[in-house]
Amino acid sequence: MHSYNEESSKNYLSAISRLKLLEEGTSKIISDEIEAANLDWRNFSYSEYVSQGVYSLSLLSSDGDGSNTLIKDCKPKPTEVLNKLPKTAEILNNLGLDFMWARLNLLGPNACLWEHRDYSELDNREKLRLHIPVKTNDNAYLILEGKKVHLHKDGLWKLNPADFVHGAVNEGEDRIHIVLDCYVNDNLRNLIKDEYLDESWLADLKKPTTADFNDKLINALRLYQGDRKRDAEELLLRTYYHFNHQEGGSLDLVREMYHLLGKKEEVNLWESRKTRFLKQETYENLTAAAV
């Protein structure tokens, strides 16, 4: 019998779940193939959304270019990267999914994706994001709904990135996932029928106090005044991975820092980023940020 709270599990199933177990050793097969291919990792295109240490390559993209990692609706083409990974290509083909895009994402030690929603710049076709953890560690998590979730290897995982604010953090050695953006077809619907989430895979984040956030703001202001602007912003953005924030809370803390500093332009910038990250992004803004 599975040991999880039924109501809690039901609440989170729509956000995150394991769809199926892959054949034992699948993640190692892919990891070994990636290592042997000696890939030329590129900086992540969504630069505003991440810390340093996040890299990506496309396996399927709109134009067949592996360095093109800024996703959009399309019928994708295999890239030169996927051509170097024939075993990985076979594993993906056997899933029977309708891919929009497929990428390798690498998070180095202490790398993060800030809290955000996805797909708001895309069309309204039903789509979901799937993850295959390739190389991971016990200190690599997705964060959502006040919980952290470690995605273990040899599993196909579903994330609903449009309906749930989420982020990712890696506090261990390099973490590599295959990230599959998929249009929902009959095969994916059938996989979802068997989705599963064990309560033991979820860990609560701390509920913050006013003192917790005041302490973070004081430390961020010290960093900023020491000419460490990026470090100050990131200290506040990283609170998302340790505290059960209200939605957008980490972004609000950065905005509050600039309010305390009397920097109106920066306050407006972070108000705009909060809207873009959580509600409505545009492809034009993403393209400009990636240049």
Rank of each mutant, 00 (worst) to 15 (best):
N5P: 00
S8M: 14
S8E: 14
L13Y: 06
R18L: 10
K20G: 03
K20E: 08
E23F: 14
I29S: 03
I30S: 03
D32C: 05
E33R: 13
F44Q: 02
F44D: 02
S47Y: 03
E48G: 06
Y49I: 00
Q52R: 15
D65H: 08
G66D: 09
S67A: 07
N68V: 05
T69Y: 06
P78A: 15
P78H: 12
E80V: 11
N83K: 12
K84G: 02
L85M: 04
A89Q: 10
L92R: 04
L104M: 12
L107H: 06
R117I: 04
D118A: 12
D118P: 00
E121K: 13
V134I: 10
N137D: 04
E145L: 06
H150P: 01
H152F: 07
D154C: 09
G155F: 02
G155Y: 05
L156N: 08
K158Y: 01
L159W: 14
N160C: 05
N160K: 13
V169W: 02
E173V: 13
E173F: 15
D186R: 15
N190S: 06
K193Y: 08
F213K: 13
A220Y: 08
A220L: 09
R228S: 15
K229I: 10
A232M: 10
Y240G: 00
F243W: 11
F243Y: 09
L253F: 07
L253E: 06
Y258N: 00
G262H: 13
K264Q: 05
E265S: 08
E271T: 03
T275C: 02
F277V: 01
L278S: 03
K279N: 06
Q280G: 11
E281A: 04
E284P: 04
A289K: 08
A289N: 10
V291M: 13
